[in-house]
Structures are given as C-alpha cells and as structure tokens.
C-alpha cells in the first residue's frame, strides 16, 4: 500500500504548492487524482517519484520509506512526455526495461507483449520521432509498464489519445489493477475517471479537499432530491420547503436542508402529479464543480 502523509512543498517562502496532502492507495486499487490546473497533482506525483524533494511529509510503500531500489519497482509516466526521439520504438522500450532491472530475455518478452497489447506492431522498428503524438504516448506508456511495476504513477495518461487509445489504455489499466497493481492517475476527463476508479482525491490550491470512493463523495454531496411534477401549479417552486433548482428536462433538484423528505413530498403532492421523487446522485463532474468553485 502507498501512503502519503502530510506532504508539504513550498518554493522559496512563497505560498505552499502542497499543503498537508495525504491519501493512500491500496493494492489492486485505481486512484483518480483530479483538480484544476496548477492544483498540485503533478507536484505530488513528482515528489512521489523522487523528481522533487518535499519540504516535509512522508511517503511509504508497504510501511517502508521509499528509496531508489523501491522506486525502481514503480512505473511513471511524466506530465511532459519524454522519449529518445531517434531511438526505435522496440529498442527503446527494451532499453528502459533493462534500465529498470529486467534481464535481457525478460525485457524482450515484456516489450513484445506490450507492443502487441498497445497496437504498436506497425511502428515498432521506426524511430519515435516518426510517430504521431498519440502513438508516442502509447510508447511512453509501454516504457512505464515494461518492468511490470507494482505501483503505476500516470500523469494525464489519457490526454492526446483517440477514443480507441483511451479504450486500450483503460482496459490495460484494469488488467493491471486485477493483477494487484496499485495505480494513481490524474486526468481532467472526469467521466472517464468516474468510470475507471476505485477511489479518488480532489486537490485544489495545494490542499486535498476530498478523498474517498465515488459513492462516498456522492453520498456526502448528494443530499438533494431530484423530482419531476406534471401539471404543476404556477409558482410551486416558492411553496415547497428548501431551495429548488431547475435541472432541465422537466426535472428539479431540491436542497431540503431542515425539512424531511416526507414534508417535501407532501408539499409537492399539493402542487401537481409527482412523477419522480428520490435522492439525487450527482455526477463526479457536478461534485467537482461544486467543490472547486
């Protein structure tokens, strides 16, 4: 298990880039890391991978501090993709495999499997610079995966991929997750995050403002009722308890803090035919907008 505890980072006395960031990722768990640009996602990942030094805080893997030997069992896809442009695809993936500690035969086998799995066969003997950005990204992913890491740290792995690439990557990550690999990835594609993750963290201005499963966050932010009325009397929104928002499509959200659902239902029945009544489960994108606004 990865545990990040009270991570703090400042640059020369300015405002903290990270302020007490804490979260954990279990074995076989996909952790989505979301937040606006500049919130601190990449900084956290770069500290985790030893690219930056934290000002304070601790990171442990299975209860032990992380040194270079441990870090070599991690896979990393940096925010800015970095590959040797004049090296051939297969040669490059193999080379990184050897660098990350595989023996030649293992590296060859893993490389061949990844080239196949990521549909890179047609380009495997070409120099990286001859590939489209999307295909370069697949190579970058292969480099991060080649040594079968136990923890995957992927900074915006889906950006720049076409829909087919997104599906390939998502499927591959689920496979690795099922093999017990812990995965952290950041993304702005919140619907995708919601579909893929087991837990997530929302970071804003260097502070972790929420962590948990999607269900937990929905529960925490979802104390609103979603209703639909037919033949409603004019001005009904002013006569039911709580604040009423138009959710479009004939549906309304009611924030009924201070009233019971029963009070709201009774009031609604006086105003028209109640076609829909129940707790609203907000989409991740709505939770995110609300929390980060």
């Amino acid at each position: 298990m990865l545990r990040i505890d009270g991570l703090h980072k400042t640059y020369g006395g300015d405002k903290a880039a990270l302020d007490s960031v804490s979260f954990s990722v279990g074995a076989g768990e996909i952790f989505g890391f979301i937040g606006p640009n500049g919130a601190g996602k990449s900084t956290t990942m770069r500290i985790l991978m030893g690219v930056l030094e934290p000002t304070s805080g601790s990171i442990t893997w299975n209860g032990r501090p992380i040194d270079r030997g441990v870090r070599r069992t991690f896979g990393y896809m940096p925010e800015e993709r970095g590959l040797y442009q004049k090296m051939k695809v297969r040669e490059q993936i193999r080379w990184f495999g050897r660098l990350y500690g595989l023996v030649a035969a293992e590296s060859r086998r893993e490389t061949d499997a990844l080239i196949d799995r990521l549909n890179l066969g047609a380009f495997s003997e070409k120099e990286v610079q001859a590939l489209s950005l999307g295909n370069q990204q697949r190579v970058q992913l292969a480099v991060a995966l080649v040594h079968r890491p136990r923890l995957l740290v992927l900074d915006e792995p889906f950006s720049g991929l076409d829909p087919g690439g997104v599906d390939d990557l998502a499927a591959l990550l689920r496979e690795r997750r099922d093999d017990g690999v812990s995965i952290i990835f950041s993304s702005h594609q919140l619907e995708l995050v919601e579909r893929m993750i087991d837990a997530l963290g929302i970071i804003d201005q260097g502070r972790m403002i929420a962590t948990g499963t999607v269900d937990e966050l929905q529960e925490r932010n979802g104390r609103r009722l979603r209703v639909a009325l037919r033949d409603a009397k004019p001005g009904w929104t002013g006569r039911v308890p709580g604040r009423v928002f138009d959710a479009r499509g004939g549906e309304y959200l009611i924030d009924a803090a201070g009233s019971t659902p029963r009070d709201v239902l009774v009031a609604l029945m006086r105003e028209g035919d109640v076609e829909q009544f129940g707790w609203d489960r907000p989409q991740l994108v709505e939770i995110f907008r609300e929390m980060v606004a």
């Binding site: 770069r46 991978m49 030893g50 690219v51 270079r68 870090r71 070599r72 991690f74 990393y76 940096p78 800015e80 993709r81 970095g82 590959l83 040797y84 442009q85 990184f96 660098l99 990350y100 500690g101 480099v143 991060a144």
Partner: peptide, 13 residues
Amino acid sequence: SSRIVESLFIALR
C-alpha cells in the same frame, strides 16, 4: 528539455 531524465532517475543517480 524532453524530461527523459524524470524517467531515467527512477533507476539512475
């Protein structure tokens, strides 16, 4: 400039 170092320093000093 290409940040390859970030991938290298996982394994290299």
